[in-house]
Design a protein around this nucleic acid. Structure first.
Lengths: 198, 198
DNA sequence: GGCACAGGTTAACCACGGTTCACGTCGCCG
DNA sequence: CGGCGACGTGAACCGTGGTTAACCTGTGCC
């Protein structure tokens, strides 16, 4: 009773059970067809339960989406900050680290990448604001590194560069799995590096 | 009577009237909130009529979306083929032309770019198939040029490169309008060129 | 054993939104 | 003038889908 085994606030590393299954299955479905087109029954069926069972784990379908997007933003932001502390002071190393991280994330979680920028608009304004705040902080880490590498460029310019790099790297969900993971990783990394220093 | 002034099949250059207004307004709304979240009433209101009035111009909301996506794919494909015939036999020139074209299109029609890859899944299978066919042909033009520039790369590899370039160029809707159009154009072009030849 | 509670189930509820209907109005053509 | 066709409107219809309600079952703990 003193220690709650799980909370709606953050990932529960201890057990990969239900709730987590639901989030994962929902992410997959949302990525394929868009959150508005996926029914609660569909999500339930994907984990072997009926629709309403979802409500034992989430307050609403919207709450489910909100938590999904929040977690993604948090993981990305935390990852970027980890990368920046691990890399030294050399902006080139930092950039390489950020690119490697984003490439890995995109290749490992194509569904999350898709959902994040497709269904942000489906969130209630309060949740959307919070997600955008996290995203902005993530972007700003990139902008900082890019600015260090190109001192002549304005902040707006660097932001545009950062978004272009995200677009490039996040293209993976669109290019089907024709290429092996290592090949894709190498290709995206090379292209992103070349584009970043253009 | 002998010459029908408009047909559902292709754009009606003669007059920018209703039907066309509707498609344009709908594209804007769909881009902002996603087609599933936009009501027929919303689209109507955007052009100053009530919801059901839409049905005087389109068989259904889905038909509207289908026509929208078909037109986009057709415009892109036609543009690419135009570019390739205008450019000479030099693959480098061809690539530059394709990039310039895609950059212009993306900067001129951010809403269409957004809708095209967000709402393809909302189409009936028959329509979706047709759109994908057109898209595939568009992509193949890029793949051909990229293959000519990098003979050692496999077709799958070139396809991945092409999608990455699309992602890069199509990032414009995400980076707000902070940068002037010419600056954005120059930046995207430079990054795309650098990435393409990486 | 029995109680509490987590986790499911089915049936019902209800709002929303696409679509259709029956009805106006305006402009043009014979 | 009379009527027809294009274009709109407000009201009604109805399927879909999120949500809730009432009820069941197993498991762990006193």
């Amino acid at each position: 009773m003193t220690a709650e085994p799980d909370s709606a606030l953050h990932a529960d590393a201890a057990r990969p059970s239900r709730r987590e299954q639901i989030l994962q299955a929902a992410a997959q479905l949302f990525a394929e067809r868009g959150s508005r087109s996926v029914g609660v029954d569909d999500v339930g069926a994907a984990v072997g339960v009926t629709g309403p069972a979802i409500y034992r784990h989430f307050a609403s379908k919207d709450a489910m989406l909100a938590e999904m997007l929040l977690r993604i933003s948090e993981r990305l932001l935390a990852g970027a900050e980890q990368v920046l502390t691990d890399a030294g002071d050399d902006p080139a190393d930092q950039l390489a680290g950020l690119i490697a991280f984003q490439v890995d994330f995109a290749l490992d979680n194509p569904a999350l990448i898709t959902v994040q920028d497709r269904d942000l608009g489906a969130l209630a304004e309060a949740d959307a604001r919070q997600v955008r705040r996290l995203q902005r902080r993530y972007v700003e880490h990139w902008v900082g590194v890019l600015a260090a590498l190109a001192p002549e460029a304005s902040t707006a310019e660097c932001r545009a560069r950062a978004h272009a790099l995200f677009g490039l790297i996040n293209s993976t969900p669109h290019s089907g799995g024709r290429l092996s993971r290592p090949a894709m990783q190498a290709r995206l990394t090379a292209m992103a590096l070349a584009a970043a220093t253009a």
